[in-house]
Design a protein around this nucleic acid. Structure first.
Ligand SMILES: [Mn+2]
Ligand SMILES: [Mn+2]
Ligand SMILES: [Mn+2]
Ligand SMILES: [Mn+2]
Lengths: 217, 217
DNA sequence: TGAAATTTTTAGATTAGTCTAAATTATTTA
DNA sequence: TAAATAATTTAGACTAATCTAAAAATTTCA
């Protein structure tokens, strides 16, 4: 089995490489709040275990088995987040750090029964897809609000920033997963966006628009 | 906060001292499957943190704050065991090792909401009392079946041995928490015991009788 | 009560994970 | 294309937790 530190590295590498296939030592270090030299040490261990492809100075990618481990951790993280919100009434801005701890409980049986108990949810409280027990999940086609055209309508289906302060701001604006919004105006000057939500007009900054994902209908 | 190793030591010391107030280095070592020299090292750390009273060569006891920490860990352990059995349909012989991992997730809010979600259970699947958030619990007056007299009736309310093989044996005999039994015979030769359970007669060894607790009515 | 046995502590190593500082390699840019 | 800059690795050290072997203290009991 893998240690807690190894699991955290694998998950970080997964997130860093899921779009562009390669991650550098520095980017891993900053995403884990650690130092580049510590990362180098760990990369050697993960390479020895055949969980990553590592060429010194050239960065890393996950091997098939490393990806499988990473997706297992992400599955556990998202299922626990769902559990905390749906069963224990936590708010969506309160669950991430707790799930960071809970994701390391390694029993396969535990997680599969938790999944069953909750009715096999497909998305976590932030709209992220939950991998099934084989690591498969739907790659939803989502678009940033900041990339939408005027008059475009969509359903809020995800957020890029999971920080409590961002999520609390969305709560205050009543922008939540599942809300149907229409982009009614885009200000040229600062790229801020006006949305129609039910009977309400909401004006959000470019930065906020850049962190909300909508599904086209 | 305390490390995982520190928590395991505190819990072990609690269990070793709950009856007789003092625990020695060797008994702690054997209950944690570690070596006496490792225990001595850790005892110094715990004493520095004022969690135990430690006099070299004289054994240890928990301080008030050490006991509070230990009871918090035991509360978490037993609540997770209850959750696993009642919500996720694990059997009572399957949950202990998993709870050993889960008990170290430290969020107070998590555990209090879990407690509420389950309706504030008073006992875990093995009949052990669950401390409340302040560490209080009922000290049930229980008696070993091996200490009962002929014709005594009681309700199975706890087990001393939590090993899967013992619990599976009890399942096979249909002896479970809540079963009303009567001691109908005690064999002088080997101290084995005959029980009446519903319409059935069950004969158990002295060793088994020594690990079942009943509540007098 | 004083040796023998037992228990406990100390001394010295080891491993995982981390750090700072220095050296090395790769990339940028003038 | 050769400095300058940036990224990465190496060297050496530290902490927590563990181990084995040896020393010291305590307990047992002849
Ligand atoms: Mn999260
Ligand atoms: Mn999430
Ligand atoms: Mn248990
Ligand atoms: Mn139990």
């Amino acid at each position: 089995m893998n240690t807690l530190a190894e699991e955290n590295y694998l998950k970080a590498i997964y997130h860093l490489t899921v779009n562009d296939g390669n991650a550098g030592t520095n980017s891993i270090a900053s995403s884990l709040n650690t130092k580049a030299s510590s990362v180098t040490d760990m990369l050697k261990k993960l390479a020895d275990k055949a969980l990553i492809n590592y060429i010194p100075y050239q960065g890393v990618s996950l091997t098939a088995s490393g990806q499988k481990v990473a997706l297992g951790i992400i599955r556990r993280h998202r299922l626990w987040e769902y559990f905390l919100v749906e069963k224990l009434n936590f708010k969506w801005d309160e669950v991430h750090d707790l799930a960071e701890e809970m994701e390391h409980i390694s029993s396969q049986q535990l997680i599969d029964r938790l999944d069953q108990f909750m009715g096999y949810p497909k998305h976590d409280p932030h709209g992220e897809p939950i991998p099934d027990c084989d690591g498969y999940f739907n790659h939803d086609e989502l678009k940033l609000v900041s990339a939408a055209a005027i008059n475009q309508t969509g359903v809020i289906s995800g957020v890029c920033d999971h920080s409590p302060s961002f999520l609390q701001y969305l709560d205050k604006q009543e922008l939540k997963i599942g809300s149907r919004i229409t982009v009614t105006d885009i200000i040229d000057y600062d790229h801020s966006v006006t949305l129609q939500l039910n009977n309400k007009k909401i004006h959000i900054s470019c930065e906020v628009a850049n962190n909300i994902l909508i599904a086209n209908e």
